[in-house]
Write a protein that binds this DNA or RNA. Structure first.
Length: 566
RNA sequence: GCCCACAUAGCUCAGUAGGUUAGAGCGCAUCCUUGGUAAGGAUGAGGUCAUCGGUUCAAGUCCGAUUGUGGGCUCCA
């Protein structure tokens, strides 16, 4: 598809040039889904239909894509007024470069292309956006037009329909609809309020996390949300992370709202002498942190300003490092699969421009992480320069409904904070040694994770996570007493149960329960009451017939215990 | 923060080309209905049209600023 999409971007660029004249061009590549082209020209939404019309003409003209080869000097002359193209040309280390020509439009391009413009049978320009030249905010902003194209109209319709479907899974719509959470402008962007049902979901996840951490030898901590600025100066955050920190001043004392949990855990580590026999020490905290994020980047629960991390810090010695990383990796992948996530992207992030510590130490840590990924046979990409200022890391990114990647689990090696805080343990020879730290989260932030989870399940959570697990739907008011009895039994068995006692028809109650994506509906009519049974309807399987109350409760408990996704 | 777009009832949206008391559906309240697997009916409450300023005899509608939201870009320990 790449060739096809890239060719469509040339068609779009030629249409834009026909309409707006001799404008400067940026780049116009194919992307994962579709293509874009950047123009140094003010183009607005209302221009898109005009451009589409012009593209249609070019397609109807069925122009041939011709390859033209020029030597560098000819190319430079040809691109005289295309300053952005000249920049690209300067980086090409070859005597000849290729151009592609369709109609009167000729563009520096290594190709390849499809044969003729007429092959593009269906296309749509999707959105218009600003994009800095070369992705650098110091450069001018160009106008980027995104589009998609196919060889048939059916494929295009299919694509557009899928996008529409995906939007219905958007956690920002489903979240408030299902009573999970809300973000109030009046309070501030990026600050989530958990409503009762969302809090149940959150609580289930927290309970599960705590149990899993205890099983793996972690000690749980709780640390304050604010602390003196000096702590953050010592950690280096004030230097390397300043623009994201919220500062608080009171009676001439300077405090910060904690943007990270690590210094807190370090305080506890430092509180007494540690022996090599104590290591590794694993401290875990559901730590709520606040970070200022630029207004344009906030996105529902997926990018917020206040969030709770399932954060842990492991203090160990260098010989334990590899094993600890392995354990953490296993832990993270295990947790993801327990929540039904099987598709994610893995990155190894290396040394950034701003960093602390020695180069050899960075190499050592990077190699340790890489070694674990390779030994576990995981597919990963290197993300150069994306490490934290204190160390390299493994990032695992989860995908949302529109396939955008969001960082979830991350494992970071840190040889630097132990230095800054002068951490030590006593070795078997009685001498002092410096421990190594691993920072890691296995779900990431609860907010982001739940945002992804909502989209992943499209709101249809497995039973164990469903805020309401069963809803009782009496067919007439005459069954209300029996329904209330059934409700009492379910609640006393620890099943999250609701009763729809409205004087509505059954169909209506089913529709509403279905929209709330409640896993099981218990239907009670005259028949059920007489036989002391209940009839069950599952949100996806439909009517699954009558059950004895005890039998059904046993089934529910099994399904909850197994954490099944049905 | 930058580019583009958007902002009307709790929610989803109509509002013609500026012209009296701004509409609908859902939801909510009250009443009627007691119906067997995805919407039963009636009545009613609810809006200083995001905010501020301007143009005009007249602004939800036109212009500007601000705030917020959306999609991108940049950023993201």
């Amino acid at each position: 598809m790449e060739e096809f999409w890239h060719s469509t971007s040339h068609i779009m660029a030629s249409a834009v040039c026909r309409i707006f004249g001799d404008i400067k061009l940026g780049i116009g590549p194919a992307i994962a889904e579709g293509f874009y082209y950047d123009f140094d020209c003010k183009i607005q939404d209302e221009d898109l239909p005009k451009i589409e019309d012009e593209m249609r003409k070019i397609i109807d003209e069925d122009q041939r894509f011709e390859k033209i080869v020029m030597n560098i000097d000819e190319a430079r002359k040809f691109l005289e007024r295309q300053t952005y193209k000249l920049e690209i040309l300067d980086e090409i280390d070859d005597e000849h470069v290729s151009f592609y020509k369709n109609g009167s439009f000729t563009d520096l391009c290594k190709g390849p292309h499809i044969e003729r413009t007429g092959q593009v049978k269906a296309f749509k320009l999707l959105k218009i956006a600003g994009a800095y030249w070369r992705g650098d905010e110091k450069n001018p902003m160009l106008t980027r037009i995104y589009g998609i194209s196919f060889e048939s109209k059916e494929e295009l319709d299919d694509y557009l329909k899928k996008q529409e479907e995906a939007k219905k899974r958007d956690h920002r719509i489903l979240g408030p609809q299902l009573g999970l959470f809300e973000i109030y402008d009046e309070v501030g962007g990026g600050l989530a309020f958990w409503h009762p049902k969302g809090n149940i979901l959150r609580d289930e996840i927290i309970w599960f996390l705590k149990k899993e951490h205890k099983n793996r030898g972690y000690f749980e901590l709780t640390t304050p949300h604010i602390g003196k600025i000096e702590l953050w100066e010592q950690s280096g955050h004030c230097d390397y992370y300043r623009e994201n920190i919220y500062f608080i001043e009171k009676e001439e004392e300077n405090y910060v709202l904690k943007p990270m949990n690590c210094p807190g855990h370090i305080m506890i580590y430092k509180s007494k002498m540690r022996s090599y026999k104590d290591l590794p020490i694993r401290y875990f905290e559901l730590g709520t942190v606040y970070r200022y994020e630029r207004s344009g980047v906030l996105h529902g629960l997926l990018r917020v300003r206040g969030f709770t991390q399932d954060d842990a810090h492991i203090f160990c010695n260098e010989s334990q490092l590899k094993n600890e990383i392995e354990e953490v990796c296993r832990f993270a992948f295990d947790m993801l699969s327990r929540f039904g996530f099987n598709e994610y992207e893995i990155y190894l992030s290396t040394k950034p421009e701003k960093y602390v510590g020695e180069d050899e130490i960075w190499d050592l840590a990077t190699d340790a992480l890489k070694g674990v990924l390779e030994e576990q046979g995981l597919n990963f990409s290197i993300d150069p320069g994306a490490g934290v200022f204190y160390g390299p890391k493994i990032d695992i990114k989860l995908l949302d409904a529109l396939n955008r990647a969001w960082q979830g689990p991350t494992i970071q090696v840190d040889f630097n904070l132990p230095d800054r805080f002068d951490l030590s343990y006593i070795g078997d020879d009685g001498r002092k040694y410096r421990p190594v730290m691993i920072h890691r989260v296995v779900l990431g932030s609860l907010e982001r994770f739940i945002g992804c989870l909502v989209e992943h399940y499209a709101g249809k959570f497995p039973l164990w996570l469903s805020p309401t697990q069963v809803i009782i739907l009496p067919i007439t008011d005459n069954q209300l007493n029996y329904a209330k009895n059934v409700e009492r039994i379910f609640i006393s068995e620890g099943i999250r149960t609701e009763l729809d006692s409205r004087s509505e028809k059954l169909q209506r109650k089913i529709k509403d329960a279905q929209e709330l994506k409640i896993p099981y509906m218990i239907i009670i009519g005259k028949k059920e009451e007489e036989q002391e049974k209940i009839s069950i309807r599952h949100r996806s399987k439909g009517d699954i017939g009558p059950y004895g109350i005890d039998d059904f409760i046993k089934n529910l408990k099994d399904e909850i215990r197994e954490k099944l996704s049905i």
